[in-house]
């Protein structure tokens, strides 16, 4: 069932705004990692900026390249959750750029470009499967992280056992840690996919980028992909099943009309 932003309660608005902000930043980062053109445009000492939303949680941070330790040069501030949701969904709305240091304007321009590029990459038929899978995985997993704490999910999160899930699709590897009412997402270096490093309570592997794309874009139901062997779950099943249930809530948020 589609919902309009106007019908959301204050908590849902706040969660949606945070989700949109998180997705914007993560997709921008992902686009930078995938796109040579964008990398060329990035200043030599990198980009660091923050998004802040009044009525939502602490500011979220964009860091390009991911390893850079540069201090943020800009705070992009949204005066309310609706403005954040609108602007970050590509509609008109108020966003106030507050410079925090030199390079603020460059950071803002770069962020806009990167976000635009991420959307293009998701749309374009020419995007490689690896890039598309990477974008969708980032959007999904950081999406889970952004909504995990909301009260709608409280009981569900209680039932899901705590633990660490490894996610694998081709050379992409993530670790998703569920603890109490939080989900923490960490991208692993590709080598982690092969090595036997940290203890994982469960492992979710996609047969390849194509399967990841089909499942994460909703083209193929997860349970069906599981049944047909395109997705494999090993280890603590209720942990992964539980996350799929949280995923349903994420889809609901992503379907909210602005």
């Amino acid at each position: 069932m589609k919902t309009n932003f106007a019908h959301l309660g204050p908590e849902e608005r706040s969660v949606l705004a945070r989700l949109k902000a998180s997705l914007a930043l993560r997709l921008a980062e992902e686009a930078c990692a995938a796109d040579a053109e964008l990398q060329k445009r990035c200043p030599p000492n990198g980009i660091a900026m923050k998004l802040g939303i009044r009525g939502s949680d602490a500011p979220l941070r964009l860091q390009v390249p991911r390893t850079s330790s540069r201090r943020p040069s800009l705070l992009l501030f949204f005066p309310n959750t609706e403005a954040a949701v609108r602007v970050l969904s590509g509609a008109k709305g108020t966003a106030i750029p507050l410079p925090l240091g030199s390079g603020a304007f460059v950071a803002l321009t770069f962020f806009r470009k990167a976000l635009g590029r991420a959307a293009e990459l998701l749309r374009s038929p020419d995007t490689s499967e690896e890039t598309r899978a990477g974008l969708l995985l980032a959007a999904t997993l950081y999406g889970l992280e952004a909504i995990a704490g909301e009260s709608y999910l409280e009981r569900r999160m209680q039932i899901i056992p705590d633990g660490v899930v490894g996610i694998r699709a081709g050379g992409i590897a993530y670790q998703v840690t569920k603890k109490g009412r939080t989900i923490h997402v960490q991208r692993d270096a590709p080598s982690a996919a092969a090595s036997g490093s940290p203890h994982l309570d469960a492992l979710l592997s996609f047969a390849g980028y194509r399967s990841a794309i089909d499942v994460l874009s909703g083209k193929r139901q997860a349970v069906v992909a599981l049944g047909s062997g395109e997705v494999r779950v090993e280890g603590l099943l209720p942990l992964v099943q539980g996350l799929f249930a949280v995923l349903d809530r994420l889809s609901w948020y992503l379907g909210v009309e602005v």
């Binding site: 139901q221 349970v223 069906v224 599981l226 049944g227 779950v233 099943l237 099943q241």
Partner: peptide
């Protein structure tokens, strides 16, 4: 929905 639902779902 789900092909086979509930506890008989293949994923179980």
């Amino acid at each position: 929905p789900g092909g086979i639902y509930g506890s008989k779902s293949p994923g179980f």
